[in-house]
């Protein structure tokens, strides 16, 4: 796929840099569309507000990974994300899952990139779920590694005897986490897809 950024990459950068003006522009351009979509599909204003926020957060988390380039218009990409999220929500709430939508929104590239973003969210949920099942000391330790704290500082903060001990504990905890994740029935569906 062509990796040349679309001019709408500016919205991705704005979300990453908390650019209030451009983020406001996203709301100006798309809030009405999201509200109409949600109201047509079993939801209200509060649902639309939540969906808007959650979809933007999904984009931000994907973009934080560093290898993300928006090569399509933001609107189509955003549409596929909020649609997928709303379907998920309806499923959890046990409501009807037939989506009434505007026609003519299909764009393969937008959909492909959006699927990558929603899969990233699914993987995050999978990883978090098993992370929560680790022992308290593993969670505490790994959380600091995910926050990118240098191992030396982790040693000091958690009062480990040496950096080597920290590393040994990290390897064991990460190993346990990998095993839990790989045993999950959703793992095969989610692995190796981006």
């Amino acid at each position: 796929m062509d990796k040349k950024p679309h001019p709408d990459q500016k919205y991705i950068d704005a979300l990453l840099n908390n650019d209030n003006q451009l983020i406001k522009e996203i709301y100006q351009k798309y809030s009405k569309e999201v509200l109409n979509f949600v109201k047509k599909n079993n939801g209200n204003e509060q649902d639309a507000d939540d969906l808007f926020q959650e979809s933007l957060m999904a984009i931000i988390r994907r973009a934080r990974k560093g290898d993300f380039v928006l090569t399509v218009p933001f609107g189509g990409y955003f549409y596929y994300i909020y649609k997928a999220k709303w379907l998920d929500k309806l499923r959890i709430m046990g409501k009807e899952q037939v989506i009434k939508e505007e026609t003519g929104r299909c764009n393969d590239d937008s959909q492909t990139i959006a699927i990558g973003t929603t899969l990233n969210e699914d993987r995050l949920a999978l990883y978090k779920k098993h992370f929560e099942q680790l022992t308290e000391s593993c969670r505490q330790l790994l959380r600091l590694t995910f926050e990118k704290l240098p191992r030396k500082q982790i040693m000091e903060r958690l009062d480990y005897a040496s950096e080597n001990t920290v590393n040994q504990r990290v390897h064991r905890c990460r190993g346990n986490l990998q095993k839990l994740i790989k045993q999950d029935k959703n793992y095969d569906r989610l692995r190796g897809r981006s």
Partner: peptide
């Protein structure tokens, strides 16, 4: 992927 993904959640 676990490291990068959980970092996007916990480090920000």
């Amino acid at each position: 992927d676990v490291g990068e993904t959980l970092t996007t959640n916990y480090a920000y």
